[in-house]
Design a protein around this nucleic acid. Structure first.
Lengths: 211, 211
DNA sequence: CGAGGAATTGACACTATTCAAAAACTGTGG
DNA sequence: CCACAGTTTTTGAATAGTGTCAATTCCTCG
């Protein structure tokens, strides 16, 4: 973006704080702008017909929420709820649209970003359909560590409830719990309250591949 | 696109015919352009680590293949294979890139298109993770009819092998076969060779919702 | 300390994959 | 036109993987 555009954006942006558990927007809602994540983590989920919530993506610092819906000029197909206290800034739709149509570089940049998201979505589809729940749980832990890090004691920095883990993996909460319990018994992970830490990364990765 | 641009595209485009079963491009291949589907149908699939092919999308007339990879400047994450004799036209990467950066309207149009694909991918993720194989098979038949139509005898115009059906649904071939056989016994569908026709749409839709 | 939600566990029904074998179909060369 | 070889489609039976429901136990917060 040019300097003038950047200025316009920073003039109009509104910073918002969202507490863990609170929604930024919900499925079906009409969005009149996008939200940039400055801090914290949000889950993007979609309610399935059977009443369960499928988490499609976890978004953290640097991610932009609502982009897809604003560009497609549709209501949101996902809900965004904070899983860790957040600070987001809001950018009105008008600015996005205007910048898109006046600045090809910006459009291409957004395009690249969306192309990347699409590839990730394809990968998730393959994972969901071709891997067992056990493999997906193992994968989820690796993913959580790689994307959100771990504290000095080796526990994952992003702590999700067992239900959220199940919703990321796409399974029943009890199934996820049982597998976590198995992993612990096998010495692959350690737990402390709802916190989870990776013990034996190597074997966990093996597990994710199916062994 | 402007007239001049359109002309440039039609000057450089190369028409290609692809027979059923032949590949247009494969996973990991570097694409130096995109393919527009003028006729026929292609499956876009990704090989999973366990050796099975997951069909992510079926593309027909009007669809553009390879767009994502060209835009992201990456090798293709999917393979494209014809499931029905095809006619495609090739548009070199250079032209795409140039048009993207010079014509904001074109970029926005592509963006909208990709936003739509992304939403569809989200829906597929939810279906894969939250529905049973039986529901997904039922859904697949409805999808095939809605998108590819049926002949005068009521058989689906797009005939896929049982294996392809299983790969769309994300299950073992035998599982898909068994479910198809069940549906037939229940009077929901009829078959003739590998052709499949929908008998009782209403109950099939119920089935897709899970009853 | 008590209430209410979260996490865990057991038992059981149901779903789906796997391996093996039989039957049906397809194209080819005699 | 038929027989053969190679696929694809079907079916069976055994096994493994998941989901559901109900009952406890744990935790956390007011």
């Amino acid at each position: 973006m040019s300097k003038a555009e950047l200025k316009k954006v920073s003039d109009t942006k509104i910073t918002k704080f969202v507490k863990k558990g609170e929604a930024i927007f919900s499925e079906g809602e009409k969005l009149n702008g996008v939200y940039c994540v400055r801090d914290g983590v949000s889950k993007l989920s979609k309610l399935s017909p059977n009443g369960k919530d499928q988490i499609v993506k976890l978004a953290t610092q640097g991610a932009v929420l609502g982009q897809r819906s604003v560009i497609a000029q549709e209501t949101s197909n996902l809900s965004a709820v904070a899983v860790k206290d957040m600070e987001v800034c809001f950018i009105p739709k008008d600015i996005i649209e205007e910048t898109l149509s006046s600045n090809p570089d910006f459009a291409v940049e957004v395009l690249r970003h969306m192309a990347h998201d699409l590839k990730e979505a394809d990968d998730v589809i393959v994972n969901m359909s071709q891997k067992t729940v056990k493999q997906r749980v193992a994968e989820a832990f690796i993913y959580l560590r790689d994307n959100f890090g771990e504290d000095k004691e080796g526990y994952l920095s992003l702590t999700l409830s067992r239900e959220d883990i199940a919703n990321v993996v796409g399974t029943a909460t009890e199934s996820a719990i049982r597998i976590i319990s198995d992993f612990k018994k096998l010495g692959l992970i350690k737990t402390s309250g709802k916190m989870i830490g990776i013990y034996d990364e190597k074997r966990l990765i093996e597990m994710a591949k199916g062994h």
